[in-house]
Simulated assay, not measured.
Amino acid sequence: MTAPLRQLLRAAYLPDEAAAVSRLAKETGLDGKARDHIVSVASDLVADLRSGGQVGLMETFLAEYGLSSMEGVALMCLAEALLRVPDDITIDALIRDKIAPSDWAGHRGGSESLLVNASTWALMLTGKVIGGSGATAWDIRENLLSLVRRAGEPVIRTAVTQAMKILGHQFVLGRNIDEAMMRAEGMIDQGYTYSYDMLGEAARTASDARRYFMAYCQAIMAISGQCKSHLIYHNSGISVKLSALHPRYELAQRNRVLAELVPRVGSLALIARNAGMGFTIDAEEADRLDLSLDVIERVLASPDLKGWDGFGVVVQAYMARATFVIDWLYDLAERLDRRIMVRLVKGAYWDSEIKNAQVEGLAGYPVFTRKASTDICYLACVRRLLAMTGRIYPQFAT
């Protein structure tokens, strides 16, 4: 049945969103009573969290700089991006782009946190120094600001980078696998497990791909020290991006990708199996999905992985074809007599997917344009996964 399912997947690349949501809403199986119960439980959870009294730095920042404001978005972009920007020139450009245009003065003294208020003053002054007004060469005030701007960039860079690292630690566990594992120890002692991911862009050259491959090997060996249970699901694992392991990970290079990438991924999966951990193939952009499924099918079919339940795949619910992907994975597991892990997420490339579709002049979008549509698809996928536990171990994320 695999071939017909792949045809369904391809046909649903640019769906009619209204029709897709209508289909998915029926598949959720939720009537009015069930939805009311969900709202009640969710409201109680939020109320309990807000009354808990243990408010962290991240929550305090978000209370002042909501993601609905330009300043909040700027802070989140900086916090996520600065930890992986390699050079000072790019850091300075990023700080100028994100901080200078924003209205930091409007948040002055608005928080109960001394640290947040101090940060607001620092951001406001930084914006004034690096923003400038584009005055003429005879404007003495602007010339002085320009001098401070040039002389002060290293200081500003250091201060902003340090401040954003505090926020960035909410998103990034560590700068390398050793640092990440050290920070994870406290939660692991409480019974939690982690699926470690390596931040970075896709490989651009063959040397990039080799470097990522060796980094994944080293990370698997390091994580193996945390794998103490004979049950894979009770151990930490690793997530791998296929685009990091091949410099031409694109459909036009399909034959080359399958010849070169499948052995690399198979080698990593075998090392993970021997280490007793989960090994998950991370999601890519929509136009790479078909190629990713080809790689997944060939790697999973290896006799070396037979009897191992640690192979996993990430499915993105912001695509209307997510349910078809789950059906295809279930069919593949049945055909190969495997049990695999499927991690359901909402999606990570929404902005670029929308923009690329517009640039290419496509008739539609490969992802939903409304968050509510993604939520409905997520619920439909949850119901599907929970009905497939004979072949699939469901995992749920955001």
Rank of each mutant, 00 (worst) to 15 (best):
D331Q: 13
G186T: 15
R321P: 03
V148C: 12
I376T: 09
P366H: 01
R273F: 07
P86Y: 08
S224L: 13
G56K: 05
G168F: 05
R204A: 03
D44Y: 04
L242D: 01
K33C: 04
C377L: 00
A180G: 09
Q226R: 15
W308G: 05
W104N: 01
V46Q: 10
V313L: 00
D87C: 01
E353N: 02
M319E: 14
M182T: 12
D16T: 08
I166H: 05
L268M: 03
A397M: 05
P15K: 02
G131W: 01
A219L: 06
T374P: 04
A259N: 10
E64P: 03
A380R: 00
E112W: 14
S373P: 02
S69D: 11
G191M: 02
V116P: 07
I99N: 02
A283S: 14
Y194P: 03
V21I: 15
F311I: 12
Y65Q: 00
T193D: 05
A20C: 01
G361Q: 08
V172K: 09
L14P: 01
D309P: 11
G131K: 07
R10W: 04
D304F: 13
L305W: 07
G225P: 00
A272F: 10
E112H: 15
M181T: 11
V46R: 11
Y330D: 12
M124A: 13
V262E: 08
G276P: 13
S102T: 10
H37E: 12
R108Q: 06
M124D: 14
R6Q: 07
A63G: 15
V155L: 14
S51D: 10
G132N: 03
L305M: 12
Q358K: 10
S22T: 09
E179N: 02
D87S: 03
G237H: 05
Q316V: 05
Q190Y: 02
R10K: 11
G66D: 13
L362D: 02
L125A: 13
V85Q: 08
Y233C: 06
G191P: 04
A180Q: 04
L62V: 02
D351R: 10
E285H: 11
P247V: 10
A333P: 05
R23Q: 12
Q226K: 15
D309T: 10
Q253V: 03
L289Y: 03
I166R: 06
S43C: 12
R210M: 15
I38S: 05
G66E: 11
Y393P: 00
A47F: 12
S119Q: 04
D48H: 09
V148M: 13
K355Q: 15
A184H: 04
E360A: 10
R84C: 12
R273W: 04
K165F: 04
S119Y: 05
A380V: 00
A203W: 08
L75Y: 06
R35K: 14
R96E: 15
A357G: 12
P15Y: 02
W121Q: 06
G52R: 15
D87W: 01
S267P: 00
L305P: 08
